[in-house]
């Protein structure tokens, strides 16, 4: 069993990301979309939490490229280990995992 978690809120706005990261298991994927991508910017306090989650819980973290671009976040400004994906990659993640859990 693996889950794709989607987070569409900024970590500075709601606790969705924090709660999500507290409910993941190794092998799960977390995809940041919409304002959620703000948390993936390198050098940010939210980014530190993402790095810690990748190191400690073994989750994979992704960010949707189109939402990054809209918010002026280039790929080279992502937290190390966070992968930028496109909409097709989103579909692949949904298909690869057993369930999708949205953290609204």
């Amino acid at each position: 069993m693996s889950i794709l978690h989607t987070v569409n809120k900024s970590a500075y706005e709601r606790n969705a990301l924090e709660s999500c990261l507290g409910h993941t298991r190794p092998g799960d994927a977390v995809l940041l979309i919409e304002d959620g991508v703000i948390s993936a910017r390198a050098g940010s306090t939210a980014g530190e939490k993402l790095a810690a989650a990748m190191a400690e819980t073994g989750v994979s973290i992704y960010a949707l490229g189109a939402d990054m671009a809209a918010r002026g976040i280039p790929e080279d400004k992502l937290v190390d280990g966070v992968k930028a994906i496109d909409y097709a990659g989103f579909v692949d993640l949904a298909a690869e995992n057993d369930a999708v859990e949205a953290w609204l």
Partner: peptide, 21 residues
């Protein structure tokens, strides 16, 4: 302040999300 600083960030490109920049 807070996430509002992102409103005036450089290089916003919204073509991928289908919204007006």
């Amino acid at each position: 302040i807070d996430d509002g600083v992102y409103q005036i960030i450089q290089g916003q490109d919204t073509t991928g999300i289908g919204m007006k920049n």
